[in-house]
């Protein structure tokens, strides 16, 4: 809102007839100068308010209604009460945390291990471009790659059978943890490079002399990495993990194409829950209530985590 007040200041600084014209002009131009930075940033802010403030307000408003096609029936807090006792909602929340948490943890560990081995390697350019490739496919295409490999084409089952781990076929959609692991593998395959690229860049751009000094003192590389390099790039790790964490909690495409929440809703993420309530059962008011809950969590997370990560990341 400060934006609007300040731009309003331009109009108020009308030339005063009693004073010499030059002075009035100067005064107007100083008001303009003060408003200028706000004028530059205002279009972007207004545009973004259009996609955050307006939809946010709309969702809050809609969450107090029962929406039946064009008819809106006010129901007070009913949607929220229902949400509170809806086991599917809690299940979706839990699934998002379980699937996202496991995938994020694995991605961090793998990306860090790969970065540790790769960043001083002579072939780093090759590793970087090879590891990057999965990230360059459209997420919907990646979902189909794994849908074919796990379910429709039974390739994973066949490979596991060939090395003698199983007999018969695994039903990756029929078992809770198998279904969850397809989502985890698909996410891991596509997005580990995101963290890898950032970690390697951070490791390469740090002060090499510190590592060198530690090495001359006779420390081994794993020890140097753990005690010297990692602490130095900690702010970068924080930013990368926060960004990946945000994206992982909004996981939708893989669920939509790979599992559709089966079996029994154990792979349904919160984004898919909102989508299903809104666009499959057309229960828009209820879906909006879930969206509002997610919005509150997002705002809290942004204030607590993101602000801190980005402030230290700039150091």
């Amino acid at each position: 809102m400060a934006v609007l007040d300040q731009t309003g200041g331009v109009a108020r600084a009308a030339p005063d007839r009693a004073r010499p014209r030059e002075k009035a002009l100067r005064r107007r131009s100083s008001a303009l100068r003060r408003a200028f930075p706000y004028l530059l940033v205002a279009p972007a802010v207004i545009y973004l308010l259009g996609i955050t403030l307006y939809p946010g307000a709309y969702a809050i408003y809609q969450s107090f209604y029962l929406v039946r096609f064009t008819e809106w029936i006010p129901v007070g807090f009913d949607n929220y009460v229902e949400l509170w006792s809806d086991s599917e909602f809690w299940q979706a929340l839990l699934n998002t945390l379980i699937i996202g948490g496991i995938a994020l943890a694995l991605e961090c560990v793998i990306a860090m291990a790969l970065a540790f081995f790769a960043y001083r390697d002579a072939l780093i350019r090759v590793w970087r471009i090879v590891f990057l490739m999965p990230m360059l496919f459209m997420p919907s295409a990646v979902a189909f790659v794994w849908k074919l490999a796990f379910n429709d084409g039974r390739v994973i089952s066949d490979l596991l059978r060939k090395i003698g781990l199983i007999d018969g076929n695994l039903d990756f959609l029929g078992n809770v943890w198998l279904a969850r692991s397809t989502l985890i593998v698909a996410d891991l395959w596509q997005w580990t490079p995101f963290l890898f690229i950032i970690f390697v860049a951070a490791l390469q751009s740090q002060d090499q002399e510190v590592e060198e000094a530690a090495r001359l003192d006779g420390a081994s590389w794993p020890a140097i990495f753990w005690n010297v390099s990692l602490p130095m790039i900690r702010p970068v790790i924080a930013v990368a993990v926060v960004l990946r964490g945000i994206d992982i909690t909004t996981m939708f495409t893989n669920v939509f194409i790979l599992t559709k929440g089966t079996p029994g809703g154990t792979t349904e993420t919160i984004s898919y829950f909102i989508y299903r309530q809104g666009f499959q059962t057309f229960n828009f008011g209820y879906a909006s209530a879930a969206a509002v809950v997610m919005l509150v969590v997002t705002i809290l997370a942004a204030q607590l985590v993101v602000k801190r990560a980005f402030r230290s990341g700039k150091a």
């Binding site: 972007a44 802010v45 973004l48 996609i51 955050t52 307006y54 939809p55 946010g56 709309y58 969702a59 809609q62 945000i246 909690t249 909004t250 939708f252 919160i270 984004s271 898919y272 909102i274 989508y275 809104g278 828009f284 879906a287 909006s288 969206a291 997610m294 919005l295 997002t298 705002i299 997370a301 942004a302 993101v306 980005f310």
Partner: peptide, 16 residues
Amino acid sequence: YILSTRMMAPAIVAIP
């Protein structure tokens, strides 16, 4: 504020 719009999940604003 501009940065924080990056945190907004598409599903939150999808219906509006």
